[in-house]
Design a protein around this nucleic acid. Structure first.
Length: 424
RNA sequence: GGAGAAAUGGCGGAGUGGUCGAUCGCGGCGGUCUUGAAAACCGUUGUCCGCGUAAGCGGACCGGGGGUUCGAAUCCCUCUUUCUCCGCCA
């Protein structure tokens, strides 16, 4: 959510920046400014009437104490008209506030100045790439065949238990999941992240805080009986830890890491490129979250990018890092780097991480602020997060890239966690 | 799920209709004293909105929402949460 002050003061700047995201903000902003003006007008009036009301009420109290009943009654008579006027005005302000919020919440975050213009994936900018593309034979199998061959992930069984997109991991497949999760968490801890294990269902306020609600309601599973949402990412519960919190500057940056299952409805998005592990309704992910000082949030972003890059390198996967263009980035983000790894048999890049700085956009929804020593005012923090990493596509790439005639070689760094070197 | 009790500022804990944004203690911050520190003493200490260049002024907030009243932390309704007892349970 953009700050109302910014909208008041830099309307043209906002409209121009949001063009990069292919969003025409002019109409919404005009509505916002009109609502804001009338809200303030009404507030000025009600505040002064209320001040008068408070003054008279105190006077009545004093008169009553002095036993001056007649004068108290005269004063009391004066309040009736005032009270009515206040009531009429204040009944106007509620709906205006609601409309104002509805409109403000529709504005996406402003893209950072380094964000390239563009409409889709083709316009993303390749920042750098690393690793060596593996040479595989023509007989190389895609992961959906490999998992059957070695009986490590069972989609049909998942369909029986739940439905499509909820696979069952078996034997070495299950153990590989556990190994990756623990490896990622351990690497995060080494990099100074504090681990949390949050609830994987959240309430409406949390969904709003990080920007999933109200607009992306259909993307989350919704337990309607209790009005809870299954988390689409650990970003939601972990960032919301800091909802309605005022931090002191010396606590920043806060660095959290969390493993959670993630749930995504992905309604309508099943098609050609989503076979096997490429897109699931339930998957595992380790997420890093940072709460940063506004002056240092881009340093934080760079550190997070390096951390994620280190993980991919240590797994020996070829990768590239993209700076997303305006049209491909999320509603809430100011700058996003996507990480893609090469999947040998599918012969395509798979997105395995997305690292973003949200600047104060989420913080303003969350009301997460900080105060420096001696500061009178609070300031919004910057929030950031990134996958470190999402498992299924990493597993797909490991399976496809590392397949040999003897079986699938487990990356060296994972062997202490899996206890085996080969899946066969 | 049933019965009862409770929810006050960073924490503890007063306050049952009138000058209470809220006594007091702890903590925090600033100062005096000290070579330094501690102790002691003095002062200070929340958030949001609006008006104002500013100093400042006004409004709102005592779990959330609504109501009664000239006036609500205090009374009423409702929701949520916590605690105790009973039931169920990994």
């Amino acid at each position: 959510m953009l700050a109302i002050n910014l909208i008041r003061e830099k309307k043209d700047f906002i409209i121009e920046r949001l063009r990069v995201k292919n969003f025409d903000a002019s109409e919404t902003i005009e509505k916002i400014l009109a609502l804001d003006t009338s809200r303030r007008e009404i507030q000025v009036k009600t505040d002064s009437l209320q001040a008068e009301m408070n003054r008279i009420s105190k006077e009545i109290g004093t008169l009553m104490k002095a036993g001056n009943k007649e004068e108290a009654e005269v004063a009391r008579q004066k309040t009736f008209a005032l009270k009515e006027e206040i009531k009429i005005l204040s009944e106007k302000i509620g709906p205006i506030d609601n409309d104002l919020k509805t409109e403000i919440v529709r504005l996406p975050n402003l893209p950072h100045e380094s964000v390239p213009a563009g409409h889709g994936a083709d316009d993303n900018e390749i920042v750098r790439s690393g690793g060596v593309l593996p040479v595989v034979t023509d007989t190389a199998l895609p992961h959906w065949d490999l998992i059957k061959k070695y009986d490590i992930i069972d989609f049909e069984l998942g369909i029986k238990l739940t439905g499509a997109g909820f696979p069952v991991y078996k034997g070495k497949g299950a153990k590989l999941q556990r190994a990756l999760i623990t490896f990622f968490l351990d690497q995060g801890e080494k990099a100074g992240y504090d681990e949390v294990y949050p609830p994987i269902m959240v309430n409406e306020d949390s969904g709003f805080g990080t920007g999933q609600l109200p607009d992306k309601e259909g993307q989350m599973y919704h337990a309607t009986l209790d009005n809870f949402y299954l988390v689409p990412t650990a970003e939601v519960p972990v960032t919301n830890i800091y909802r309605d919190v005022i931090l002191s500057a010396d606590q920043l940056p806060i660095k959290n890491i969390a493993y959670t299952p993630c749930f995504r409805r992905e309604a309508g998005s099943w098609g050609a490129h989503v076979r096997g592990l490429n897109r699931l309704h339930q998957f595992d992910k380790v997420e890093i979250v940072r709460i940063a000082h506004p002056d240092h949030s881009y340093e934080s972003l760079d550190e997070m990018v390096s951390h994620v890059e280190g993980l991919i390198v240590s797994l020996g996967l070829p990768y590239r890092i993209l700076r997303l263009c305006g049209g491909d980035m999320s509603f809430t983000s100011a700058l996003t780097y996507d990480f893609e790894v090469w999947s040998a048999a599918q012969k395509r890049w798979l997105e395995v991480s997305s690292v973003s700085n949200f600047e104060s956009f989420q913080a303003n929804r969350l009301k997460c602020r900080f105060k420096d020593k001696g500061d009178k005012q609070t300031t919004l923090v910057h929030t950031l997060n990134g996958s470190a990493l999402a498992l299924p596509r990493i597993v797909a790439a490991i399976l496809e890239n590392n397949q040999t005639e003897e079986g699938i070689r487990v990356p060296k760094v994972l062997v202490p966690y899996t206890g085996f070197e080969i899946i066969n």
